[in-house]
């Protein structure tokens, strides 16, 4: 390990790619916690498949970020050797799994956002981001379909499932609001043309989310006051515990390999 970390000085494009990577890695790690704990085998497999897709996507972004950083930086340095303050994922990605409905509410909001984000990135001024997005959007449309189907099943299910999913959706709505509030990393990206203006994504998101909620006999989404800070590196206490579990092996044995 000779690479010297200097995240605070990294250029706007590297920072933006790291932000995209961090979302995918942190949510992928959260979903991986379901491995072996899903309510039935098919659902266990589904969530871990989605986790695998997200971690694969994170690798694509980290590899690109590492190339942009240069000086021998590797994808592993970026995933395993940064501290919480250097991560720029949305707060929603690090929130605990809770019960099945909580996980699916979080996933439904994220997948829907992710789809529209990738659609915009497929038009990025950056060629590499365009290519990554064109590939990932197809997988993401399966994730979004899966989580939406669960929202409908739970909302239009029993009285208990309806009440529980409504509560989960309310809980995560202010976190979803962070998607559409531009942080420094978003502003720099949209000004330079490699990322979308995040506020422009909100109308498509609200429209799609509300259409599903209506099918699920649930109330339209109320984003409320945004819970934000993740994109500036200000995380909830859950983030540190997640990193501790994910990074401990790589930090204890920095040269470990498979």
């Amino acid at each position: 390990m000779t690479y010297q970390m200097k995240w605070d000085t990294c250029d706007p494009k590297t920072a933006y790619v790291l932000h995209l990577a961090d979302d995918a890695l942190i949510l992928g790690q959260r979903l991986a916690e379901w491995c072996g704990h899903g309510p039935i085998l098919e659902q266990d497999i589904a969530l871990t498949n989605i986790s695998l897709d997200l971690i694969g996507l994170a690798r694509q972004y980290y590899q690109y970020a590492a190339e942009l950083m240069g000086e021998g930086c590797s994808e592993n340095d970026l995933a395993y050797h940064r501290d919480s303050r250097a991560f720029m994922n949305h707060l929603i990605c690090e929130q605990p799994n809770g019960h099945w409905g909580d996980t699916l509410a979080r996933q439904f909001y994220f997948d829907t956002f992710h789809f529209f984000q990738l659609e915009a990135l497929a038009q990025s001024s950056d060629e590499r981001l365009r290519h990554i997005a064109a590939k990932a959007i197809k997988e993401t449309s399966y994730h979004a379909q899966y989580s939406a189907e669960w929202i409908i099943r739970l909302g239009d299910g029993t009285e208990e499932s309806h009440a529980k999913i409504a509560q989960s959706l309310r809980h995560f709505a202010p976190f979803a609001h962070e998607f559409f509030v531009a942080a420094e990393v978003d502003r720099a990206a949209s000004e330079a043309g490699f990322g979308p203006k995040v506020s422009d994504l909100s109308s498509s998101w609200v429209e799609k989310v509300d259409a599903i909620l209506q099918l699920a006999t649930l109330d339209p989404v109320d984003l409320g006051f945004p819970k934000k800070g993740g994109k500036a590196g200000l995380h909830s206490e859950h983030h540190g515990y997640l990193l501790a579990e994910m990074q401990s092996l790589a930090r204890a044995y920095p040269d470990a390999s498979w």
Binding site: E42, I45, A46, I50, Y142, Q145
Partner: peptide, 8 residues
């Protein structure tokens, strides 16, 4: 039965 099967 399920959108996700034995492999992704």
């Amino acid at each position: 039965v399920s959108l996700f099967g034995s492999t992704a």
